[in-house]
Nucleic acid binder design. Sequence first.
DNA 1: ATTTGCTCAGCTC
DNA 2: GAGCTGAGCAAAT
Length: 110
Amino acid sequence: MKESKKEILFILLHLIPLGKVTTYKALARILKTSPRVVGRMLKLNNKPVIIPCHRVVRTSGDIGGYTLSGKENREFKLKLLKLEDVELSGDKVGSENIIYLDEVLLGSSR
DNA sequence: ATTTGCTCAGCTC
DNA sequence: GAGCTGAGCAAAT
């Protein structure tokens, strides 16, 4: 039985260094799926505690939705990121704090 | 800057 | 099994 993309996604989130964030697109590329699917997994996840979904941001640098239990907690996500040493430019994340996992795992040079 | 279209895996019927 | 939903992305306007 192959692991669901969900399972893989959660693992990838744990690979994100503290103080850094990832983009949905990067995760999607690794999982070989579309960015929307990635975002949906996070909200469909069973255990939000073990899942650092707040480390995932949009390509534009926006923090994304972050809906908990059907309730959007964008401010909570921002707060968590600040605690993680992530430099927030207003409601966005500094590009320097964004690490593209697809470049790291798949290799930037190809 | 805002709007529209596309993608596609999980959930519901 | 078929249809709907949606935590995004990209292009067009």
